[in-house]
Design a protein around this nucleic acid. Structure first.
Length: 285
DNA sequence: CCATATGTTAAAAG
DNA sequence: ACTTTTAACATATG
């Protein structure tokens, strides 16, 4: 269900956050920065991000997998751009943008249109706000992150990330997956192989492809890898269009006593790739 | 109190 | 040296 607080950001949710910044957060002059959460802003000491951003504005919002970043303007009339602001949502981060009057303009869909119990009203300092930009017009852009595993950093290093899961073509996906021998689900979750697949999107993709999450990647046939690419693309695109990975066809059936929505077999659970995994033992081979 | 958690990553293990 | 797995991270929730 949309808006539930348990939604964890995978590629589709990060894309939604990126679009939020693009629609509502660009070209507004930054006059205040709260970067005092030293855990979320690590390794930057308090004030470092603030000093780097004051007087600039965000000029573009980009994403690869679950990582997003914003380019920033030069100071004054300078054409030299400022630093890149890297944002990672971790396990529970959301991007909230407010307008000049403090009203939430973007990002609230993730909160079901409400703000929960933490005193986190729009425009006010909230318990779970870990990083805040305040604009000259009085509005804000905030990283709201209960579990505090998100990250804010200047000039983030994205060189270890594989190609974006929605853009990668079949040949490249196959070549990258086949470099190892571990279970196919573990490879899908490895952000250096392909960027953006989280636990739920992995389960959905493997269910659509009718592949067991435990299959060693080096055993997969060309046809199976093709199926996997189709499923990855379809599942990712559908999740973006429908507003989150929780809209996947098999996601509601991940649970004890639930049955495969295609064939009716009882779903089974195990740990694969270090994460709780549910699959249909009858169809996923 | 106990168990669980959908993200990342350093350290340990193989 | 390289690949794979595990444990830890900070915090919330049931």
């Amino acid at each position: 269900m949309p808006g539930r607080l348990t939604a964890v950001p995978e590629l589709p949710e990060v894309e939604s956050a990126r679009a939020t910044v693009e629609r509502a957060g660009l070209h507004r002059r930054i006059v205040q920065v709260d970067d005092t959460d030293t855990w979320e802003c690590r390794p930057h000491p308090p004030g470092e991000i603030r000093a780097a951003l004051l007087g600039r504005s965000l000029t573009g919002a980009f994403r690869r997998g679950k990582s997003m970043w914003c380019e920033t303007s030069g100071l004054g009339r300078s054409r030299t751009p400022g630093p890149v602001l890297g944002l990672h949502l971790g396990m529970s981060g959301r991007i909230l943008v407010t307008g000049p009057d403090g009203t939430l303009t973007e990002g609230g869909d993730w909160l079901g249109g409400r703000y929960g119990q933490g005193g986190e009203e729009p425009g006010r300092k909230a318990v779970w706000d870990r990083f805040t930009l305040t604009f000259a017009d009085g509005g804000t852009l905030r990283l709201f992150d209960k579990r505090r595993l998100g990250r804010v950093r200047l000039d983030p290093d994205t060189s270890a990330l594989g190609p974006d899961a929605e853009l990668v073509d079949a040949a490249e996906l196959a070549a990258r997956l086949r470099r190892g021998r571990s279970p196919v689900k573990a490879r899908l979750l490895d952000q250096s192989v392909v960027a953006g697949v989280g636990n739920l999107l992995a389960d959905e993709t493997l269910w659509q492809a009718r592949l067991s999450p435990r299959r060693p990647v080096d055993e997969l046939t060309d046809a199976e890898l093709d199926r996997l690419h189709d499923a990855l693309h379809t599942a990712t695109r559908a999740a973006i269009d429908q507003g989150g990975v929780h809209t996947g066809e098999v996601i509601p059936f991940r649970g004890a006593g639930r049955h495969c929505p295609r064939c009716g077999a009882e779903m089974v659970r195990d740990t694969v790739g270090g994460r709780t995994t549910w699959w249909c033992p009858a169809e996923q081979r």
